[in-house]
Design a protein around this nucleic acid. Sequence first.
DNA 1: CGTGCCCCCTGTCAGC
DNA 2: TGCTGACAGGGGGCAC
Length: 277
Amino acid sequence: VPELPEAETIVRGLRTPLVGRRVSDVEVLRSDLLVTPADELRDRMTGARFTRVRRRGKNLVLDLDSGESIESHLVVNLGMSGRLLHRPLDDQTPPPTHPGVRWTLDDGSLLIYHDVRRFGRLDLKSPAALRKWHRGLGPEPLSRAFTCERFLESLATSTSPVRTWLLDQRRVAGVGNIYANEALFLAGIHPETPARQVPRERARQLHRSLRSVLREAIRNRGTTLRDYRTAQGWEGSHAGRLRVYGRNGLPCFRCNTMIERIVFGGRSAFLCPRCQS
DNA sequence: CGTGCCCCCTGTCAGC
DNA sequence: TGCTGACAGGGGGCAC
């Protein structure tokens, strides 16, 4: 689920409640979600303070300080159905149905990792391990480093279908199946076009449309199809704004041609056969 | 290095 | 009503 816009929305919703707070308790209910051994996670997080909450690609990164400049970084990948929820002390809403890890903070509020399918992963990394992991991911598509020139250069090195290219986190970080399909529609590119065969002008357009669709989805607090929720448990509102994703059998907004669903690389792609040659 | 396939897991929905 | 199969936003591992 969560792609870059969803991760960004969650991060924004966690900053205020988390930064400056100290962890008073850690409960691991599903240890299969952890890369780090459960006892180590408890030992290193208990008593530590959240110093920063950020995002890298589709991952959430929670920085912690255990004092005497001992730093850790909790990297959360939400998989398909993960949620990272903050529940204030006076919270009246029903408790999550599939909690995996629960942190109690020093103000009595709770941070809960919730995941029905349990494809998500939580990894508490050292600063060195974080740097190494960081280097393995591609550029942030909304950063200045993601220039059109670099994008064109990288596209030209690959024979993979352009949709597959967009999903590869080593090429560009944070794009998933929804926004890959949306950006390709906006740029008028068929998802199966080999990356290096995308015409230059279309590729330039793809660079622009990728950035614009991600920003638009962030403004809408992400796409809730089923599982995704913000840190406060709210749904995102971008689902109703999708142009092709999930719209097979419905008319294209631009030309009225029926949107098609095809499958390659083990995943659905949605396209307008007329607009996306 | 790229590709195609399988797997991880649970829930929902369409069709019979 | 109940069963079965397809499918779901991600990612890692494997053989080739």
